[in-house]
Amino acid sequence: MASKHLAALAILAILLPAVAMATEFTVGDDQGWTINFDYEAWAKDKVFHVGDKLVFKYTAGRHNVFKVNGTAFTNCAIPPANEALTTGNDVITLATPGRKWYICGVNDHCANYGQKLAITVLEAWVSPASAPSTPAASAPSTPAASAPSTPAAPAPSTPAAPAPSSAYGISVSGYQLLMAAMVAVAFLVV
């Protein structure tokens, strides 16, 4: 019976560290979402995956956040005001892979003060530590073009080069992990 417990614990010890946990990124770290900050440099060494969250922190009323396409990002084209996030603690969950663009629509914060962020989001991987440290290097650096009349519509994206899903090159889906956990629990019960 003790050997079954040890086997179950060994299975869990191997599988649980491989599960990708969503990361929460505070955009601009301690500076937050503000003017005169280099968001390109901030994002450069970060790896973003589907499921991660971006938190835009700022004083409500002084800034806002718009999710835009590549053309709107390049031109600092401000979408309609009703599309703005304005709480000062806006959380965006990255739901799909590809390029993502965000701008501030207050005054000329985007065009003249650099308050804009472009990132590349990778698929959700089992082991965040195994993802490449510079995902932007494998994606085009120029934003994808799309019709300026629909700046809030998702822009076409070029997926980043695939990274191994774990240190062992084994992908573990949520279903597979659930099944492994059930097997481990079954060992404990028997």
Rank of each mutant, 00 (worst) to 15 (best):
S3Y: 13
V91L: 05
H109R: 01
A20M: 07
Y113Q: 14
L6K: 09
A137L: 13
A184S: 01
Y175V: 15
V47S: 12
V68A: 05
L188G: 03
V55T: 13
G174F: 06
L9G: 09
I92G: 10
E83K: 15
T23K: 15
D30M: 05
T150Q: 13
W42L: 04
D38M: 04
P140N: 04
W125V: 13
D52C: 05
A72V: 01
D30H: 12
W42F: 12
Q31G: 03
A186E: 06
I103H: 06
Y39V: 02
S141I: 11
D108K: 10
R99P: 12
L94F: 08
Y113M: 06
C76W: 00
M179Q: 00
A41W: 05
S171A: 15
A118M: 13
V27H: 05
Y102E: 02
L85Y: 12
I14K: 01
E40S: 09
T120G: 09
L117Y: 07
V106R: 10
A152M: 03
K100V: 12
K53D: 12
F187H: 03
H63Y: 10
F66V: 07
A184N: 00
T93Q: 12
Y168T: 12
P97K: 12
F73P: 04
H49K: 15
A144F: 13
Q176W: 14
A72S: 03
A160G: 14
D30F: 15
L188C: 10
A8P: 07
I119P: 09
S138M: 02
P80M: 04
V126G: 15
A43K: 00
D52E: 08
F56R: 06
K67S: 14
K44E: 14
N75H: 12
S138R: 02
V121C: 04
T134N: 14
W125S: 10
A153N: 09
W33H: 03
A167N: 07
E123I: 03
V185M: 07
I119V: 09
V126A: 14
A72C: 01
A13D: 02
I78G: 00
Q31E: 11
K57P: 10
V68I: 11
E83S: 15
L94E: 01
A81P: 03
A7E: 11
S141D: 15
N107L: 11
T142R: 02
K67A: 10
T86V: 09
Y102Q: 09
A84V: 04
N82I: 12
A139P: 01
C104L: 00
A144I: 10
T34E: 01
T134Q: 13
N107Q: 07
N69R: 08
P97Q: 12
K4P: 06
L94I: 12
L122P: 02
T34D: 00
K4C: 12
L6T: 11
F56P: 03
L9V: 00
G98A: 04
N107T: 09
P154Y: 02
T142I: 03
A139R: 04
